[in-house]
């Protein structure tokens, strides 16, 4: 078992929380984990990404090779396209549909969504709306984790356990809201996979 995952977004969107949940679940599953993050200057509203690798064998490189990623999870649609070079031919892209337009030359959103839709394996989700329904727009990252949960081979119950642990000190309400967001995302994925 070996999964190479790129998690992408804009600084401040919570990509590291997605990574933290998968990391913890993988460690609990006795898997090897390597997860390279971006700290420092680019965190200020810039493009951010993390390379997350999990495997039942020791992992060498902290970075994923081009053409080797099994999955791209993106909280922002254009950011999902930034890392296509890393995607395997049969890799999945899971992306939010809601853009963050903090640059003047942001491309046409429809074109972006169209390109994602035309990838061989992709799921677009309105993570912001689903997160709002779950309790807060800030949980859109957990919605996307829920969508992606069908693709990286870690038991769903373990992901839920990780969320409970990671958000534990923020109280029961926050845990439940994040779990609702996760489940809403998972249902989106199941809809697509069923078809």
């Amino acid at each position: 078992m070996k999964k190479d995952i790129i998690i992408a977004g804009v600084g401040g969107q919570g990509i590291l929380s997605i990574a933290a949940v998968i990391d913890l679940a993988a460690i609990k599953n006795k898997l090897f984990v390597k997860q390279a993050e971006v700290h420092g200057m680019s965190q200020r509203g810039g493009a951010v990404q993390t390379h997350l690798r999990i495997s039942d064998q020791p992992i060498f490189s902290d970075l994923i090779s081009k053409g080797k990623a099994d999955l791209i999870i993106s909280i922002e649609p254009m950011e999902s396209l930034r890392y296509l070079e890393f995607l395997k031919p049969d890799g999945w892209v899971v992306s939010n549909i809601n853009p963050i337009k903090n640059i003047s030359n942001y491309p046409d959103t429809d074109k972006i969504l169209n390109e994602i839709n035309h990838l061989p394996y992709s799921i677009l989700a309105d993570a912001d709306t689903l997160a709002k329904q779950a309790g807060s727009i800030k949980a859109s990252n957990m919605v996307l984790l829920g969508v992606a949960s069908e693709f990286f081979g870690i038991d769903y119950a373990l992901l839920k356990k990780s969320i409970t642990e990671i958000f534990g000190r923020k109280g029961e309400d926050i845990i439940q809201m994040n779990l609702r967001a996760l489940e809403a995302g998972r249902q989106e994925a199941l809809k697509v996979i069923d078809i």
Partner: peptide, 29 residues
Amino acid sequence: NPDIVRAALDIEKNEPHPGSTLVAGRPPE
């Protein structure tokens, strides 16, 4: 990175996705 090492060892790489032409730079602000 592994891609640089692969190239230095003359190992053929699998054709990666060419990437998207839509993507604009998003510098920090």
